[in-house]
């Protein structure tokens, strides 16, 4: 466990040095601030508008950062050959991989905290409030981004960043549209396509579960059980993705 923590800490240190992350973060916070300007144009709706755009920004940019970190962190170590010095120590490859995952999870937590702080501060300044429901929304966004990062890490365990990014983006899109795809199932008559679509709908994570913006903007309460259930749902996908990634990574040759 100490070794996983050490790898996670140094992965975090490496990740936070990446200027691309700061650019993404800058755009996320810019979009939150812009929503103040846009929201002021709507009559009596500026807080709702701010919440809507703010949570959307955090979600979108959080996932972009997750994909970026997931596809590059291990690949860079292989490309730069720094991996040889780490894997030649008495550590299992699973330990290394879990450490890298831990580093990404830490980086995502810090990025999300910064974005959440920007949105909360803006909301408070505009006369809105920050309650447990909003904190819960931030938490689910975090779980989603960690889950996306685990998919990216899985793809990164066997392919290049471009291919991994492409596949993870595909999973992300399907996850966003899974309810629409399920509704579309009845209209597909060709058996093979129908079975394929059924498989995709059954296996893909439904990312809509992690977004409670509508409930928050319209004031519908979300129970603790929901947060727990969705967290477990995300955790399930993370465990499967990481398990598969470690299985592949353990069999790789580092020439």
């Amino acid at each position: 466990m100490k070794t996983v923590a050490a790898i996670a800490l140094y992965s975090f240190r490496e990740a936070v040095r990446n200027k691309i992350l700061y650019s993404i973060l800058f755009f996320a916070i810019l979009l939150i601030l812009l929503s103040v300007v846009l929201g002021s144009a709507s009559v009596h709706q500026d807080s709702r508008f701010l919440l809507d755009i703010g949570l959307f920004s955090i979600n979108l940019f959080g996932d972009i950062i997750a994909i970026f970190l997931g596809i590059t962190s291990v690949f860079q170590e292989i490309e730069r050959k720094t991996l040889y010095n780490v894997l030649s120590k008495p550590i299992d490859r699973a330990t290394y991989f879990l450490g890298k995952f831990g580093g990404i999870a830490m980086t995502l937590a810090v990025q999300l905290l910064l974005m959440a702080a920007a949105l909360s501060a803006t909301l408070l300044l505009r006369g809105g409030s920050v309650d447990l429901q909003l904190l819960g929304a931030f938490w689910l966004t975090y779980v989603e981004s960690v889950m996306i990062a685990s998919f990216a890490l899985f793809c990164g365990s066997f392919s290049t960043p471009y291919v991994s990014g492409f596949i993870t983006l595909g999973v992300w899109l399907i996850g966003r549209l899974v309810q629409e795809l399920a509704a579309f199932l009845d209209k597909v008559e060709e058996p093979a396509s129908r079975h394929l679509l059924q498989g995709i709908v059954a296996l893909a994570p439904d990312l809509n579960f992690f977004t409670i913006t509508t409930q928050l903007t319209y004031g519908y309460p979300v129970g603790l059980a929901y947060f727990g259930a969705v967290t477990l749902y995300g955790l399930g996908y993370i465990v499967v993705a990481m398990g598969a990634a470690i299985f592949i990574f353990r069999r790789r040759d580092f020439i």
Binding site: R17, K81, T82, N85, S88
Partner: peptide, 9 residues
């Protein structure tokens, strides 16, 4: 390793 590479930061 042959020509070792490290975290240069």
């Amino acid at each position: 390793p042959e020509t070792p590479h490290f975290y240069d930061y």
